[in-house]
């Protein structure tokens, strides 16, 4: 079936199957930042934006994105590097496998919430699992990032 969408600002038309997930489609399109860590919609590794909203690409059929705008970390390289530098300065990226999905959600949060409290930050990001960092360094990075952007906690 035919799928037309805007992927990281580029209009794409592709043939996909009815049961192809957005995750599989994006990996096939070379968006290899998008990772899969579970089969049960629990880990948040596959987070991308669908019309600017963070979603689990493993749970969204590719065809549902028809006519929509999809953004992955490949399309947000400058912002990824900007926030990522704060994460790196804490050493909190650790293995990095959850970083793309996590950063997609941090960037979504920074657009959606103005001056979030610490509790709001933790709740917004609760769907992003990380087994390495214990989350503390991620929070330090977010605080510094938001403070630098004027959206301080």
């Amino acid at each position: 079936m035919q799928l037309t969408l805007t992927l990281n600002g580029v209009r794409c038309t592709d043939e996909v199957q009815a049961d192809t997930t957005l995750f599989t489609y994006l990996r096939e399109k070379g968006c290899l930042s998008v990772k899969c860590g579970c089969e049960t919609s629990n880990c948040g590794l596959c987070t991308v934006w669908l019309d600017e909203k963070p979603v689990l690409s493993c749970s969204v059929p590719a065809l549902r994105a028809d006519g929509k705008k999809v953004t992955t970390l490949e399309g947000l390289q400058d912002e990824a590097a900007e926030f990522g530098a704060y994460l790196a300065d804490e050493g909190a990226e650790q293995c990095g496998y959850c970083s793309p999905g996590f950063i997609m959600n941090v960037l979504a949060m920074s657009r959606e919430l103005t001056h979030p409290t610490e509790q709001e930050i933790q709740e917004y990001l609760a769907g992003n699992l990380c087994r390495c960092s214990g989350y503390q360094g991620q929070l330090r990075a977010i605080r510094k990032f938001l403070a630098a952007k004027g959206g301080c906690v």
Binding site: S33, K35, G84, A85, L87, G91, E93, G96, P100, I103
Partner: peptide
């Protein structure tokens, strides 16, 4: 000191560096 990891920026920008990416 708290030197930044040498591979940090490639990880945080989602570069294809893991087994499944290669």
């Amino acid at each position: 000191t708290g030197v930044r990891k040498k591979d940090a920026m490639s990880l945080v920008t989602g570069k294809p560096v893991y087994t499944g990416d290669l």
